[in-house]
C-alpha cells in the first residue's frame, strides 16, 4: 500500500467518532429497525431462545418450563425463523465490530489474563443473564428500546441499573482493583 493511500485511509477509518455521533447513528438505526421489523433493537431474546432449546434437548426444568419448551419445539418453524433473525443480528454485531476494528487497525487478540479474571467474567455474565431474563431485556432491549418506546418499565429498569452499577463499582474497588 502506498504511503499516500495509507494516509488517506487512516483519515477515513482510524479516528473514533464522538459519542454524540454514535448516539445519532444508533437512534437512526433504531427507528429504521422499528419501521422495517416492527420491533426495536433487542439482543437477549436470542439467548433466551437458545437456552430454552438447549434445555428442551437436555430435558430438565419445572413442568411449566417444559410445557414452554414443548410449545416452542412444536412451533419450531416459526420460532426458529423469528429468533434466528435476532441471533443473526447478534452475529452481525460481532462481525461489524471486527470490521470496524480491522479497518482502523485496532484489532488485538487479548488473551485471558488469569483465573480470577475468567471467574469474574463468568460471574458477571451469570448475573447479567439472570437479570436480563427475569426483567425482559438488557441495556438495549429493556433500557434503550424500552425508554425509546415510552414504556415506564424502561425507566424503572434504568433506575435500578444505575443502583446496580453503583454497587458493582464499589465491589470493583473493594475486591478487584
Amino acid at each position: 500500500m502506498e504511503r499516500e493511500d495509507q494516509k488517506n485511509f487512516r483519515r477515513w477509518f482510524k479516528p473514533s467518532w464522538s459519542y454524540v455521533t454514535g448516539a445519532v447513528l444508533l437512534s437512526i438505526l433504531q427507528v429504521i429497525t422499528l419501521i422495517v421489523t416492527q420491533e426495536p433493537l433487542g439482543i437477549t431474546s436470542a439467548f433466551s431462545y437458545w437456552a430454552i432449546r438447549l434445555q428442551g434437548v437436555l430435558g430438565f426444568g419445572t413442568p411449566a418450563q417444559l410445557t414452554m419448551v414443548t410449545q416452542l419445539l412444536g412451533a419450531r418453524e416459526a420460532l426458529w425463523f423469528e429468533e434466528n433473525l435476532v441471533t443473526l443480528r447478534n452475529l452481525g454485531i460481532i462481525l461489524g465490530a471486527l470490521l470496524s476494528a480491522l479497518l482502523a487497525s485496532q484489532f488485538r487478540l487479548k488473551k485471558i489474563k488469569s483465573g480470577q479474571q475468567a471467574l469474574t467474567a463468568l460471574l458477571g455474565g451469570l448475573l447479567m443473564g439472570y437479570g436480563s431474563s427475569i426483567a425482559a431485556g438488557c441495556n438495549i432491549g429493556a433500557f434503550f428500546s424500552g425508554i425509546g418506546s415510552m414504556s415506564l418499565s424502561g425507566w424503572v429498569f434504568g433506575l435500578f441499573l444505575f443502583i446496580g452499577a453503583f454497587i458493582g463499582g464499589k465491589l470493583l474497588i473493594r475486591f478487584l482493583i
Binding site: 458477571g124 448475573l127 443473564g129 439472570y130 437479570g131 424503572v156 435500578f160 441499573l161 446496580g164 458493582g168
Partner: peptide, 24 residues
C-alpha cells in the same frame, strides 16, 4: 417492548447492573 413492571424489573436491574460492571 412495553414490558410489565414488578419486583423482577427491580431485582433484574440491580443484578444486571452489578454484573455488567464487574464483567466490564
Amino acid at each position: 417492548y412495553i414490558a410489565s413492571i414488578g419486583m423482577n424489573t427491580v431485582v433484574g436491574g440491580i443484578i444486571f447492573g452489578i454484573g455488567m460492571v464487574i464483567a466490564g
